[in-house]
Simulated assay, not measured.
Amino acid sequence: MASETSGGDATGTVRVDSWIWSVRLVKSRSMGAAACKGGHVRVNGERVKPSHGVKPGDEVRLRQAEGRERIVIVKRVIRKRVGAPVAVECYADNSPPPPPREAVAPAGIRDRGTGRPTKRDRREMERLRGVLGQPPTP
């Protein structure tokens, strides 16, 4: 079992797309490869291809949705996807805390059964959301 989670090869490296999938930073390996190809993954400050090898001590930066960046230090390389408690032991998370969610009341929620909004209703909802870039009229 130790050879399965430690990487298994003599060099002690594993592909970066496979590693970020194994430690559950992305949902699938193909998403990890797409992130690498899109320039969203950096190892030690350099953009890398999906086949780039990571080893213990490397710093991996992964830019995720909504501009959030995960910064992790590789503690252990693994090839296979493992459970979340084991995956957390494979890296040290140095990411900044996520921004707080805004407690804003959702605009434009309609009662059930009221039908489609009229053109006037739709324009009022867009003004409340600020979609058109116009301030709400009093």
Rank of each mutant, 00 (worst) to 15 (best):
L62R: 01
R63W: 00
Q64V: 15
Q64K: 13
A65F: 03
A65V: 09
A65S: 14
E66M: 13
G67A: 07
G67N: 07
G67L: 05
G67Y: 06
R68V: 10
R68G: 02
R68T: 04
R68H: 10
R68I: 11
R68E: 08
E69R: 06
E69Q: 11
E69A: 09
I71S: 04
I71L: 10
V72R: 04
I73K: 14
I73F: 08
I73R: 15
V74W: 05
K75F: 02
K75Q: 11
K75L: 11
K75M: 06
R76Q: 15
R76N: 10
V77R: 03
I78P: 00
I78F: 03
I78D: 04
R79I: 03
R79A: 14
R79P: 01
K80F: 14
K80C: 11
K80A: 15
K80T: 15
R81N: 04
V82Q: 09
V82N: 02
V82F: 00
V82R: 04
V82P: 02
G83W: 01
G83V: 08
G83C: 01
G83N: 13
A84M: 10
A84V: 13
A84E: 14
A84L: 14
P85F: 02
P85E: 11
P85W: 06
P85Y: 00
V86A: 15
V86H: 05
V86G: 02
V86W: 03
V86Y: 07
A87I: 05
A87K: 01
A87P: 00
V88S: 07
V88E: 12
V88I: 15
E89A: 14
E89H: 09
C90S: 13
C90R: 01
C90D: 06
C90L: 07
C90F: 10
C90E: 04
Y91A: 00
Y91M: 07
Y91C: 04
Y91F: 15
Y91G: 00
D93G: 01
D93N: 09
D93C: 02
D93T: 03
N94Q: 14
N94V: 04
N94K: 14
N94W: 00
N94P: 00
N94E: 15
N94D: 13
N94A: 12
S95G: 05
S95K: 06
S95E: 06
S95H: 07
S95N: 03
P96M: 08
P96L: 14
P97T: 10
P97C: 04
P97G: 06
P98F: 01
P98A: 10
P98G: 13
P99S: 14
P99F: 06
P99M: 09
P99R: 15
P99I: 11
P99C: 06
P100G: 04
P100R: 08
R101N: 06
R101Q: 13
R101I: 10
R101F: 09
E102L: 11
E102Q: 12
E102C: 03
E102Y: 02
E102D: 13
E102V: 08
A103T: 12
A103V: 12
A103E: 15
A103C: 08
A103W: 08
